[in-house]
Protein backbone atom coordinates (compact mmCIF):
# COMPACT_ATOMS: atom_id res chain seq x y z
CA UNK A 1 0.00 0.00 0.00
CA UNK A 2 1.37 3.40 -0.91
CA UNK A 3 0.69 6.72 0.69
CA UNK A 4 -0.21 9.41 -1.76
CA UNK A 5 1.76 12.53 -1.05
CA UNK A 6 0.36 15.85 -2.03
CA UNK A 7 2.75 18.74 -2.49
CA UNK A 8 0.12 21.40 -2.98
CA UNK A 9 -0.43 23.41 0.20
CA UNK A 10 -3.84 23.13 1.77
CA UNK A 11 -6.28 25.95 2.15
CA UNK A 12 -7.50 26.56 5.68
CA UNK A 13 -10.62 28.43 6.72
CA UNK A 14 -9.68 30.78 9.54
CA UNK A 15 -12.98 32.67 9.90
CA UNK A 16 -16.54 32.34 8.58
CA UNK A 17 -19.73 34.39 8.94
CA UNK A 18 -18.25 37.65 7.67
CA UNK A 19 -20.39 40.11 5.71
CA UNK A 20 -17.66 40.97 3.24
CA UNK A 21 -13.99 41.09 4.12
CA UNK A 22 -11.79 43.66 2.40
CA UNK A 23 -8.42 45.38 2.64
CA UNK A 24 -6.44 42.88 4.76
CA UNK A 25 -3.21 44.23 6.31
CA UNK A 26 -0.64 42.54 8.55
CA UNK A 27 0.06 44.76 11.56
CA UNK A 28 1.64 43.94 14.93
CA UNK A 29 1.28 40.15 14.51
CA UNK A 30 -2.35 40.21 13.52
CA UNK A 31 -4.30 40.52 10.30
CA UNK A 32 -6.52 43.60 10.29
CA UNK A 33 -9.30 43.81 7.76
CA UNK A 34 -12.55 45.63 7.24
CA UNK A 35 -15.83 43.72 7.23
CA UNK A 36 -17.84 45.84 4.82
CA UNK A 37 -21.53 45.78 5.56
CA UNK A 38 -20.93 44.70 9.16
CA UNK A 39 -19.33 48.09 9.93
CA UNK A 40 -16.38 46.51 11.69
CA UNK A 41 -12.63 46.36 11.47
CA UNK A 42 -11.49 42.98 12.75
CA UNK A 43 -8.06 41.93 13.99
CA UNK A 44 -7.27 38.19 13.95
CA UNK A 45 -4.14 36.21 14.79
CA UNK A 46 -2.68 33.25 12.89
CA UNK A 47 -4.71 30.83 15.06
CA UNK A 48 -8.02 32.52 14.32
CA UNK A 49 -8.47 34.37 17.62
CA UNK A 50 -10.29 37.53 16.58
CA UNK A 51 -11.76 40.66 18.04
CA UNK A 52 -13.60 43.67 16.71
CA UNK A 53 -10.88 46.33 16.80
CA UNK A 54 -12.99 49.22 15.55
CA UNK A 55 -16.70 49.77 14.97
CA UNK A 56 -17.10 52.22 12.13
CA UNK A 57 -20.05 54.50 11.51
CA UNK A 58 -20.11 54.03 7.73
CA UNK A 59 -21.92 51.35 5.73
CA UNK A 60 -21.07 49.84 2.33
CA UNK A 61 -19.28 52.34 0.11
CA UNK A 62 -21.62 51.61 -2.80
Amino acid sequence: MTTKQTLAPEMRTLMTGLAMGESPRWHEDRLWFSDWGAQKIIAVDIDGRSEVAVRVPFALPF
Binding site: P9, E10, M11, M15, T16, G17, G21
Partner: peptide, 9 residues
Protein backbone atom coordinates in the same frame (compact mmCIF):
# COMPACT_ATOMS: atom_id res chain seq x y z
CA UNK B 1 -22.71 36.43 5.92
CA UNK B 2 -20.97 34.25 3.35
CA UNK B 3 -17.66 36.02 3.93
CA UNK B 4 -14.64 33.92 4.91
CA UNK B 5 -11.02 34.43 5.78
CA UNK B 6 -8.86 31.72 4.18
CA UNK B 7 -5.15 30.98 4.52
CA UNK B 8 -2.67 29.00 2.45
CA UNK B 9 1.11 28.63 2.60
Amino acid sequence: RTGQLLTIA
